[in-house]
Design a protein around this nucleic acid. Structure first.
Lengths: 336, 336
DNA sequence: ATCAATAACGAAATCGTTTTAGTTAGTGTC
DNA sequence: GACACTAACTAAAACGATTTCGTTATTGAT
């Protein structure tokens, strides 16, 4: 590998001058600067990041913590899209992205230790169990951290506005005349709680008495669980006219159940999802859902994180809420 | 940050001794070694990767090149699963994974230059256009490289065995009595060519005359294209009894078309996909498809790459073929 | 001519490791 | 007691950049 020393020798100057020329310091002549830059290019010089990082403490490397337990991480459309958008934004600003090692390697380091070890300048955390001691250590640490869909006091976070999203979805459903609305919600998390809150509020707004037997719980993306619970809902003496699924993917389970009972969507029963992933719009009928703005969530996370790194003193908006968008598919029937 | 110097001072020894103790060199006393390791731990010492890399030229960082043009990268189930598996394997061996920057940042470096700059020790390449000059530069470079689903002479690659996979699928379809088989194949690539080869071979094996009007082309994962082509196939005077889609996801388009013509799967027409992603098994009816072994593909890619890095002299198997597995769903009807 | 200011460059220290080549002290042998 | 060995440690030179503090030469003002 050709180093600054080589370039310096070639140009007959010192390494200091080469460094300054390449970094556009003011105290190097216009002539020399051009010559040095040109020979560096010609010789195929590439700066050595390790050496630079050693001096400057800057690695221009961001970490992304993202646990994929049982296929629900990288192969999870919602989070994958967020990551993709995060990546694009960060790269445009000159940062690279490294996965935070989570399969606890031989050295047995914690997330935090691993981030320090790897020299990551900031971390975005998404799609993990935020309540493990290890996760908490990282969130509370001195490293710049941005969390996605989870709010920790005093730390910046970017989240989908589930309160508003579910409100819009519910108002649409109620506006279509539905009064018997079932909600198969996801496992407990701030996301789930926000959506539940809106679910009950809108019911109240419309003067609808909430019914316990209409509210069930399944894991996100669990098609089998949602399928099973749908059967239960369909077997109710007074069955709902609309079923809200935890998310678009699990809605597939709901759809299976409905179809195998010989019912049609939306003629016999309405079904809605949440997320707005591509899948939801290629189903027949097109699913009514709330599209979460993953582009913006990813982009804002990156911007926030980088700003945190580059101007540590700045007080930042601590909680960024990104609104979703109601997608009126064809899976909700107008009643009455 | 606490460095070796701090640990050395605390223990009253030299940095050299600390380094040797921590790296288990033989010429440091058992007593001292234990003491040093213990104080290092107690003081929260973490090795500085940049400094180490500067000396040893080892970063324990692998690159993954993976272009996500128009949502077909990270949000692509097949490749996402491969990456996930690659990641797990590599991390278990002490390596971290960094995305190779592909959105050409301000410095305007090529893939290769970026890899060198970032100090990546090896690269796995998947899901990109292998025929760009930039990609070729990287593939032909002196960096350890493993390609997925693409074979370049003399360089190691890991690929799904599409020849065998399509053969099994076709033999199953023919075995079910189908003779009028349409194939909507993907855009040209070695994967597509392998599958086409098997498609025609099995037709020949069964003495079936290939019919041009049954062979169409759509982009992978393009539901709309597949939907449109399905209409064309259904409108044929002598329409096929079975349609092979480019992949599971695009099969959704095919299914839409079939359903909106009022036809049923598999009673009126059989439909099969390829990939075996989760989606395919939660559809109604469950899709007949070929499950590609993403776990193995990812794992072998990582093993191959790391072996290439750690024992550069070793001559390795240059092309690793990973067999898939026929998944007999419910979407192919038995004829006759 | 003198002095201060500036422009353009270089020497050398530094970042935190690794590693080579010693050095020192202790042990065993004859 | 002299010798060779070994065990256990250290000093110091890298690695490739950045950056501080000089140094020198030139310019402009007086």
């Amino acid at each position: 590998m050709v180093s600054m020393k080589d370039v310096a020798k070639e140009c007959g100057v010192s390494v200091a001058t080469v460094s300054k020329a390449l970094n556009d310091y003011s105290d190097v002549g216009e002539e020399k600067r051009r010559e040095i830059k040109e020979t560096a290019r010609r010789m195929g010089y590439l700066p050595n990041l390790s050496a630079r990082a050693l001096k400057t403490k800057r690695t221009y490397n961001l970490g992304i913590l993202f646990v994929d337990e049982a296929q629900s991480g990288l192969t999870h459309d919602y989070f994958s899209s967020i990551i993709e958008s995060f990546k694009v934004t960060a790269e445009a600003k000159g940062y690279d992205i490294t996965f935070v090692n989570c399969s606890t390697p031989r050295h047995g380091r914690s997330y935090y230790e691993h981030c320090r070890y790897r020299g990551l300048e900031g971390i975005v955390i998404a799609c993990i169990d935020f309540y493990t001691p290890e996760a908490q250590e990282l969130i509370r640490s001195d490293l710049p951290v941005v969390t996605v869909d989870y709010v920790f006091d005093g730390r910046p976070s970017v989240a989908s506005d589930n309160v508003r999203g579910m409100r819009e979805l519910m108002e649409y459903i109620c506006g279509m005349g539905h009064r018997k609305i079932a909600y198969i919600h996801g496992l407990d998390s701030s996301t789930t709680r926000d959506r539940l809150t809106s679910f009950y509020r809108v019911l109240a707004d419309y003067g609808i008495e909430p019914r316990d037997e209409y509210v069930r719980q399944a894991a996100y993306r669990d098609t089998e669980g949602t399928e099973r619970l749908t059967y239960e809902l369909l077997d109710l003496p007074d069955r709902p006219t609309c079923i809200i699924c935890p998310d678009d993917f699990s809605a597939l389970g709901c759809i299976r159940a409905v179809q195998s009972r010989g019912l049609r969507i939306p003629e016999d029963i309405s079904v809605v999802g949440y997320d707005g992933i591509t899948l939801s719009q290629v189903l027949e009928p097109r699913l009514t859902t709330v599209r979460q703005d993953t582009r913006t969530i990813g982009r804002r996370s990156a911007e926030e994180l980088i700003s945190l790194i580059e101007n540590p003193r700045t007080t930042l908006a601590e909680k960024i809420l990104v609104p979703g968008e109601l997608v009126r598919g064809e899976s909700v029937r107008k009643l009455g």
